[in-house]
């Protein structure tokens, strides 16, 4: 490489590295500030820092978890549930996230509706786990077929193996479909949310819905969304009263007045 090209390239590399490095340092600094605020008990301050991290760098299970903890301790049950669920999307089965979510729900009376044994059995695995199971079955079958070239299996054993894997595959698919239907819920983030009979502010109320409850959006009408909750109740909610788990972040960037005055 000629000297004339080497120098600009070297300068560019140094500047680019410095730029990335500076951005990382800034994110780390914000995260550390959030942790420090959390440790001091300054939960609103911690929330602000964690939100700044997420806005700049994107989603991270750890940041969402810390953010959820901060909201939980600041009394924002809905947002805490929302961020725990988001963190679980990124790190399924994390015991801390799942444990804190269960603790929060238990503490705030957000008990899940009672379900039958079949539904409980299907709920043993989560959607990501069902997805991985469904993925592993064709892979296992392919491996078995590959081994079949090397080792001769009896016809009965082969039949049994294929039947078992197909059964497992059907189970995984059923579980995945069942969970997918409920995979993208929204969380009620407004303290005094009410399900309305019709999508108009003056419409009659169909009842209150507790902050932190999961709702499943169906159809939209202007600024209202028809939702059904975990118990099957249906009604219209203003769009400001809930936030989707997979929605655009940060939901708190809305006008605080819209989010129930929080």
């Amino acid at each position: 490489m000629s000297r004339s090209l080497f120098l600009p390239l070297a300068i560019f590399c140094v500047l680019a590295t410095a730029g990335f490095g500076r951005a990382d340092v800034e994110i780390d600094h914000l995260f550390a500030e959030g942790n420090a605020a959390y440790s001091r008990g300054d939960y609103p301050g911690a929330i602000a820092h964690y939100e700044a991290v997420t806005t700049r760098a994107g989603y991270s299970a750890a940041v969402l978890y810390n953010l959820a903890n901060s909201h939980a301790l600041a009394g924002n049950t809905g947002l805490a549930v929302l961020h725990y669920l988001q963190a679980l999307r990124l790190r399924p089965g994390d015991p801390d996230i799942a444990g804190n979510l269960a603790l929060l729900r238990s503490d705030r009376g957000l008990f899940p509706p009672k379900t039958g044994p079949a539904a409980r059995a299907m709920d043993l695995l989560t959607l990501p786990q069902y997805s991985l199971l469904a993925l592993s079955i064709p892979a296992l079958l392919a491996l078995a077929a590959l081994l079949g070239f090397r080792y001769r299996l009896s016809r009965r054993l082969r039949l049994g193996l294929v039947s078992l894997t197909l059964l497992l595959f059907a189970f995984a698919l059923t579980g995945a479909v069942r969970h997918y239907r409920l995979f993208d819920p929204a969380v009620v983030v407004q303290a005094d949310a009410r399900l309305l009979i019709s999508p108009f502010p003056a419409a009659a109320s169909a009842g209150t819905i507790q902050e932190g409850r999961l709702v499943y959006p169906e159809k939209r009408y202007n600024d209202f969304q028809l939702v059904s909750d975990e118990t099957g109740r249906r009604g219209w909610l203003p769009k400001t009263a809930f936030a989707r788990v997979q929605g655009t972040f940060p939901p708190m960037a809305r006008d605080p007045e819209d989010a129930g005055g929080r």
Binding site: N35, R89, S131, Q246
Partner: peptide, 27 residues
């Protein structure tokens, strides 16, 4: 208040959006 598990001290990897496994390219 709630006796929550402690917060994380490392921010960990970041991702641009939350996508379930079954919609990710590798899956």
């Amino acid at each position: 208040l709630l006796d929550l598990a402690p917060i994380r001290l490392e921010s960990g990897p970041f991702t641009a959006e939350i996508i379930p496994y079954f919609l990710q390219t590798w899956y």
